[in-house]
């Protein structure tokens, strides 16, 4: 049980961060606008959450130019994928335990 709780990752414990990671799990990469449109939050809000994930080394940022317009795209790192998967597994087994208990 203790083990399970330690796998619940505080870095993912927010709706927006959870959303960003979910999108990056199933997509090779996503750009800022895509993330913003999918999650429906403001620029500043999303930027701060991405920064937090970047600091944890969960998200990789690539800046480039497309048709001379700056374009920033994000992808999940290997570590990010692994830890997110652990996080999901931990939530699932926690829920399973609670169901069997009650």
């Amino acid at each position: 049980m203790k083990n399970l709780i330690s796998n619940i990752n505080k870095a993912f414990d927010h709706r927006v961060r959870l959303g960003i990671m979910s999108i990056l799990m199933v997509n090779e990469y996503a750009d800022f606008t895509t993330l913003k449109e999918l999650l429906g939050v403001t620029d500043g809000n999303i930027a701060s959450h991405i920064k937090a994930l970047e600091k944890k080394d969960y998200v990789k940022v690539e800046k480039s130019f497309i048709d001379r317009k700056p374009n920033t795209r994000y992808s999940a790192t290997k570590k990010g994928r692994e830890d997110f998967q652990k996080h999901i597994n931990a939530i699932e087994s926690l829920l399973k335990q609670q169901i069997t208990k009650s």
Binding site: L18, S22, I23, M25, L38
Partner: peptide, 21 residues
């Protein structure tokens, strides 16, 4: 807590779906 986690899971699933179409 319980409900929050269920919400989290459904959120994850929804985002994965929407972004992969």
């Amino acid at each position: 807590e319980h409900e929050k986690y269920i919400r989290d899971l459904s959120e994850i699933k929804q985002m994965m779906n929407r972004s992969s179409r």
